[in-house]
């Protein structure tokens, strides 16, 4: 099991389409992916659930803690952190 922190950078935060990109990216790996907010560790959501991700209310500036467990966990973490870090491939 591995874990990494990454901060949401794009202006609009993790809105529906950004969350959809995250789910698509996470779904490409067999490992289990969970996400939580650094400041609200009590709520842990499935990284492959768009509704779960929306519940995090991850606006710009929120730091997310992504955990991957299972086959491909390192690759999954790298890809997901890159996605968040790039502002979900939107303009900044």
């Amino acid at each position: 099991m591995r874990e990494r922190a990454v901060t949401v950078r794009n202006a609009l935060g993790m809105h529906a389409r950004a969350a959809a990109r995250f789910v698509h990216a996470a779904g490409a790996f067999p490992c289990r992916v969970t996400v939580t907010r650094e400041d609200r560790a009590d709520r842990v959501v499935d990284g492959k659930s768009i509704l779960g991700l929306l519940l995090l209310a991850a606006a710009r500036g929120v730091t997310l803690r992504i955990t991957a467990d299972g086959a491909g966990e390192e690759e999954a973490l790298r890809a997901l952190c890159r996605l968040v870090d790039s502002g979900f491939e939107e303009a900044p």
Partner: peptide, 16 residues
């Protein structure tokens, strides 16, 4: 159109 991709994902979400 990508909005509706997000809606398709919601449709399949375990929470719904």
């Amino acid at each position: 159109a990508s909005l509706f991709e997000a809606q398709l994902l919601m449709l399949d979400d375990d929470l719904l």
